[in-house]
């Protein structure tokens, strides 16, 4: 298939709805990735491509290996075999902080707000290339003060957008669960990533905040960023994702648009079991 640049979700029309299908302009490509824990094969992904500038959802039943796969892609865990690349740069053996510097920034299923730092400090931490973070220059405030002011301004503008500005001087621990999710996402944006990996961004978030989180994720696509997220909330998956990848027992079993994937029999089977609409009781047998 010819690879060319397509904007937004136009790629959907030209992409095959088969597991591991090729995308017109992939930002992330993974091949033959396996990860075993003892006898259990947690991840066994043959081929995967993520379209640049799209919102892609990674779904699957509990224990499908979604978070493990996330950890492998972002360098938090090492696979037993396989290769993967981001922006055509191989990521094998690259530690997590370098993956983040390359432009792929993740969040965590269990939110990792830095509790005894204020909200603003949490944000400022995300900024790249800070002169004041080097041991020697930290001793000379006049070297980093100007840059620090710019970082604070940027943090404040993002916090305003995320409606966390009133909380900027509170400890992150004082935020509600949903607000911490927002903070984590806002903080990831301080890194200026090209691709954002969100691990269950909606878990434990109340409906009102959920709506605002959705808007922020859509906004990322508008800014040309790529989003890959793990989620159980099907309404959300349906509402915002351009493309859905379904994992089950470590493998990718289906890919496609949200509507088609949810009709896919393999997907229904993975979630509900092969005989979910068959009466297996003794009476059913007789019939």
């Amino acid at each position: 298939m010819q690879r060319h640049s397509v904007s937004g979700n136009e790629f959907v029309a030209v992409t095959a709805e088969t597991p591991g299908s090729a995308k017109p302009d992939p930002i992330l490509i993974a091949d033959h990735i396996t990860r075993t824990f003892g006898g259990l094969t947690a991840v066994n992904v043959d081929h995967l491509e993520i379209q640049r500038g799209s919102i892609t959802a990674l779904i699957g039943p509990n224990g499908a290996g979604k978070t493990t796969f996330f950890n492998l892609l972002t360098g938090y865990d090492a696979p037993n075999s396989g290769t993967w690349s981001f922006n055509e740069k191989a990521l094998n053996g690259i530690p997590p902080h370098k993956v983040a510097r390359l432009g792929m920034v993740r969040t965590f299923q269990l939110t990792k707000a830095l509790y005894r730092l204020t909200v603003l400090e949490n944000m400022a931490l995300g900024a790249r290339g800070q002169k004041g973070e080097s041991l020697l220059t930290s001793l000379f405030p006049w070297v980093w003060k100007a840059q620090e002011r710019e970082i604070q301004e940027k943090a404040i503008s993002i916090l305003t957008n995320f409606k966390l500005i009133d909380k900027k001087d509170d400890f992150a621990a004082a935020l509600s669960g949903g607000q911490r999710k927002l903070l984590e996402m806002a903080r990831a944006l301080m890194v200026e990533p090209e691709m954002v990996m969100l691990d269950e961004p909606m878990a434990g978030v109340n409906p009102a905040l959920k709506q605002s989180l959705l808007e922020h994720i859509k906004e990322l696509r508008t800014q040309g960023k790529t989003v890959l997220f793990v989620e159980h909330d099907m309404d959300m998956v349906h509402e915002i994702s351009d493309w859905v990848i379904v994992m089950s027992q470590g493998q990718i079993i289906a890919e496609g648009t949200p509507t088609s994937v949810m009709k896919n029999e393999h997907v229904i089977e993975a979630y509900l079991g092969a005989h979910h609409d068959v009466d297996l009781s003794a009476e059913g047998e007789k019939k």
Partner: peptide, 15 residues
């Protein structure tokens, strides 16, 4: 101080 709170989070920010 951020490392004291959660080092994995700090890694995810490229440090």
């Amino acid at each position: 101080r951020a490392i004291r709170e959660d080092e994995d989070a700090v890694r995810s920010l490229g440090k």
